[in-house]
Design a protein around this nucleic acid. Structure first.
Length: 296
DNA sequence: AAGACGGGGCT
DNA sequence: AGCCCAGTCTT
């Protein structure tokens, strides 16, 4: 195992770590799981208040398992990717039914839950249960990519070599490894940032291969395409859901007024129905008379 | 391997 | 107008 980087990174984390509530020793495994789902593609500053409100309302998996999709979608508010809210509810149901209401500690069991992929399974195992696991999020990938491989940014999709590198650096002791994982993530979030890294504040700048190589540019820049927003299906979906968070039911004509392109709106509504983010209300003849958030 | 999937804040 | 954010799931 390579241990050269450990003292500097661990020492830096000891003095610079943010005081985030899900890092408290008192945080339940469930609260850690909720934080990890919310943090999938949503920044910390926006997650923190939502996380507090969510845990106050649904302190245990069994509490959330009893909620309706409409309730969780409204509570999710504008965190983005609302399918995460539905999957979190489904995960709560699975935990209640299959695991006696206790969040499982094995990565394999976590991975089997809805909405939990390789990152989140490893993160919950490490941060909630202090297990030794390879936590590979966007921060860790970027930090290790720069330090070890000398690249500006990691490839669009994770490579096996990245896991091998992370495993090679992972401390053998479980508790130490859990702290190492969060320390590297924190370094990526606060110092080794994607856009304008603060190398002057970096505890391992002297050991950074990217820095030593003179900061070569991102090799994969051409392959990263920025996602459009205005006029997209995603924006239309968001507009429909935003309206339904404040109204119990919308008539078809009210929904049509939400978006100028009727064909696109029809496609978007179909997608929302497929994703179970939306329910159509029909009269006795099967004619759609309205749309609602799913009650069950 | 590539595409879909939110929304906000910063440069 | 881009770019980025503690990713996951489907095709």
């Amino acid at each position: 195992m390579n241990t050269d980087l450990h003292p500097a990174v661990m020492g830096w984390y000891a003095t610079h770590a943010r005081d985030l509530p899900w890092r408290s020793p008192d945080a339940s495994a469930w609260s850690v799981l909720v934080s990890e789902i919310m943090l999938q593609q949503t920044p910390v500053v926006r997650v923190e208040p939502a996380w507090r409100a969510w845990l106050q309302r649904w302190p245990t998996p069994a509490d959330l398992a009893a909620a309706t999709p409409a309730q969780v979608l409204r509570a999710w508010d504008r965190l983005g990717y609302p399918r995460r809210a539905l999957r979190l509810r489904e995960a709560a149901i699975a935990i209640t039914e299959r695991h006696g209401g206790q969040v499982p500690s094995d990565e394999e069991d976590l991975l089997a839950l809805p909405g939990i992929g390789s990152y989140t399974a490893a993160a919950v195992a490490a941060f909630a249960f202090r297990r030794r696991s390879v936590v590979l999020d966007t921060n860790v990938r970027r930090v290790l990519g720069r330090l070890v491989h000398g690249t500006a940014l990691p490839p669009p999709s994770p490579r096996r070599a990245e896991t091998a590198t992370a495993l090679d650096l992972l401390p053998a002791d479980p508790e130490t490894s859990a702290r190492w994982n969060v320390a590297v993530m924190e370094l990526g979030a606060l110092v080794c940032t994607a856009r304008a890294p603060r190398c002057a504040d970096c505890p391992v700048a002297a050991q950074c291969r990217w820095r030593a190589a003179g900061y070569p540019p991102d090799e994969h820049a051409a392959r990263r395409r920025t996602q459009a927003w205005h006029g997209t299906d995603r924006q239309a979906r968001g507009r429909v859901l935003a309206a339904l968070r404040t109204e119990d039911e919308l008539r078809p004509d009210q929904v049509r007024d939400l978006w100028p392109d009727g064909d696109q709106l029809a496609r978007v509504l179909t997608g929302l129905l497929t994703d179970q983010l939306l329910t159509a209300v029909r009269d006795l003849d099967g004619v759609v008379t309205g749309y609602r958030l799913p009650d069950s």
